[in-house]
């Protein structure tokens, strides 16, 4: 099982090179007077799993949503492989169909799953292929069936979202994102809305993807996932990137006092409530 992606020059092979697949520089996003993201810069190399952690409201989700332009940043640059966008210069930004197609180079999974409510599981996985990529329905259906099997949902093709558990819905959502053969996968607190006993099945799928060489940016509160799967961990606080390094560097020996405070609070919380954050 590999991430089928014609545009990625072999996810596994590229993982070794230093050329970042995604480069973010001085990213800023504000809503009126509120500065949600204040000058964030980081790279993501092909095949790398980057996990962003930080307290609620630190701007990590907004940062993620800026990457695929669900939010339009006010400033900064973003380069995805061959395409560079400069948000200070609106004329360089894609619009309309061009913007939509740029966005499709990312796959995104959301906290609330957001499966298309009027479509079955397999239709959810097919529709992007058929509508956006203009793949013939028979082929899209075959691909969708494979993907559903891959996320452990064989035989659930014709279920409606409301007939699936949260964990199952989220796995369909992952399959839906994979169906577009994205170059980068974005995960926005994908286990936060799940019952604790359903968190594991979703994290497992994500772990498989990471092992297969998918390029992933993951915003999460699951510290164990960050520790076990991340190639690099970014800690954000108050809209800024405070600390960056391997999981061991950031989570075991944090240098910045803000990171230490956050992790200490987390560990304390985890001890008081063993159900929280455990996967």
């Amino acid at each position: 099982m590999t991430v089928d992606n014609p545009r990625t020059p072999g996810a596994g092979a590229a993982a070794g090179t230093d050329h970042p697949m995604l480069a973010v520089r001085d990213l800023c996003k504000s809503y009126g007077d509120v500065e949600a993201v204040r000058g964030v810069s980081f790279d993501v190399r092909a095949g790398e799993v980057v996990v962003i952690i930080g307290p609620s409201g630190c701007g990590k989700s907004t940062t993620l949503r800026c990457l695929n332009l669900l939010e339009e940043p006010n400033r900064g640059t973003l380069r995805l492989d061959d395409r560079e966008l400069d948000f200070s210069n609106r004329r360089t930004l894609p619009a309309g169909r061009d913007l939509a197609r740029f966005r499709a180079r990312f796959g995104m999974v959301f906290q609330q799953f957001d499966l298309f409510a009027h479509k079955t599981a397999i239709e959810n996985v097919m529709i992007g292929q058929v509508v956006v990529k203009k793949i013939r329905p028979e082929r899209a259906q075959a691909a969708a069936r494979d993907l559903l099997r891959r996320v452990g949902l064989e035989g659930m093709d014709d279920r409606r979202p409301r007939e699936l558990s949260g964990g199952q819905q989220q796995r369909v959502a992952i399959a839906r994102a994979l169906a577009m053969s994205p170059e980068v996968l974005l995960f926005d607190e994908v286990t936060s809305a799940l019952d604790p006993e359903l968190v594991g099945e979703v994290l497992e799928v994500m772990q498989d993807l990471a092992r297969e060489g998918a390029t992933m940016v993951v915003v999460t509160h699951e510290m164990s996932f960050a520790r076990d799967v991340a190639d690099r961990v970014l800690f954000m606080d108050q809209g800024q990137l405070v600390e960056e390094g391997t999981a061991a560097e950031v989570m075991v020996n944090p240098r910045n006092p803000r990171t230490r405070t956050f992790l200490a609070r987390y560990h304390r919380g985890a001890q008081e409530d063993p159900g929280q954050g455990g996967a």
Partner: peptide, 14 residues
């Protein structure tokens, strides 16, 4: 629901 809109945009729909 706004989630339906953002999910549609996220898979690249115009």
């Amino acid at each position: 629901d706004k989630g339906q809109w953002q999910a549609a945009r996220a898979i690249g729909m115009t």
